[in-house]
Design a protein around this nucleic acid. Structure first.
Lengths: 191, 191
DNA sequence: CCACATTGGTACATGTGTGTCCCATTTTTG
DNA sequence: CAAAAATGGGACACACATGTACCAATGTGG
């Protein structure tokens, strides 16, 4: 969690969350959607939105942090340092699949991606994954001459593909996850 | 080529090309860039741009067709139906890598992607690739339970990753191509 | 129930991208 | 060189997203 100075009272926290969730939905489909659209999706007045995020940039920044919070949590849940690297990586994929919309946003919105701070924190948040990949390489579980950075990127695309296959194509949830698993296994040379 | 009714005289064709190329450059970096920026990049007046493409949508549409023209040509050059499927696929990757900026645009611009006609024509243009994948499956060259549609998508992401690695990271051209080759080989089970 | 917090809606000013029109200038063509 | 084609730039109207301010209405907690 991004530690706020003072904890926020119930009602405010709820509307803030509503705004954030709506923003994820709307902006992942159309990154340049007007704020009014986001406000409508969140079922709040546009003026309320401005009360929480005075400028558009503030919302975008918060959105990036929101996404990284979720990613952070997902990576922790996956316990990447426990057990064989390939299984750990699989756990990671599954956890990340659950935060699909958030990932779709991060990979599709130039506004978020243009924030310098976002990338800095992403590299930190991302570290468990990189560590895991390096561990797998070192232990010989992963047989690949591909660089970790490359692998990392392909992994994200793979996740995104899975999410979109589940959402916009005829894939069921389990089919999507199976395809992700096989793809990841191939990329890491575990199959 | 998108057959025009009447052939265009030399000068006009040249400026049209300049506009299109500039649009690829600018919009692939910032999909919502103003037209004035594109005009400046093309070194033409904004009014000239409007003369060729009255509305923004017209430019975007033309951009999509332009991209598909290039893709079409690349796929033809790759001679996908000749020789072993894995080698043909490799030729295809290499040809597509050369049209990197165009691909980057197609995969990053919601404006282009939202055009219905674009997807229809993409499916046609794309057919040689799909055919090749199916041939490789049928001949047993490709060992994978992944669906062709999934593979196709991952292939595009792979190309994009290669292009960005070459452009924004420290990858050299050959390093990027090598990484693409290995990734494609792994995805298709040829390694 | 009352004081306070929170919200929704409206109105307004502003900046900016867009599309159109027009005319002088430059370039190409015959 | 002269006619025609093509261009560049300015002026303008228009739509729209944005940000701000204000006030009435609604909800919340003591």
């Amino acid at each position: 969690m991004t530690t706020e100075g003072t904890a926020e009272s119930g009602t405010k926290a709820r509307t803030r969350r509503a705004i954030l969730d709506a923003a994820v939905d709307v902006l992942s489909k159309n990154p340049s959607a007007p704020l009014s659209e986001i406000a409508a999706a969140a079922e709040v007045g546009r003026s309320t939105l401005h009360r929480y995020y005075p400028e558009r940039g503030d919302l975008v920044t918060a959105l990036g942090e929101h996404a990284l919070d979720k990613l952070d949590a997902a990576l922790v849940r996956a316990r990447p340092s426990e057990g064989p690297a390939d299984l750990a990586l699989r756990r990671m994929s599954h956890e990340c699949f659950e935060i699909g919309p958030t990932l779709a946003l991060v990979y599709g919105d130039p506004q978020v991606l243009s924030k310098e701070a976002f990338w800095v924190r992403l590299d930190k948040t991302d570290k468990p994954l990189v560590d895991l990949l390096e561990r797998g390489m070192a232990e010989g579980t992963f047989a690949s001459t591909l660089k970790v950075r490359w692998l990392r990127r392909m992994l994200w695309w793979c996740l995104l593909t899975g999410w979109e296959a589940f959402n916009y194509e005829q894939y069921s949830r389990t089919e999507a996850i199976e395809a992700i698993d096989e793809t990841v296994a191939r990329l890491t040379g575990t199959l």
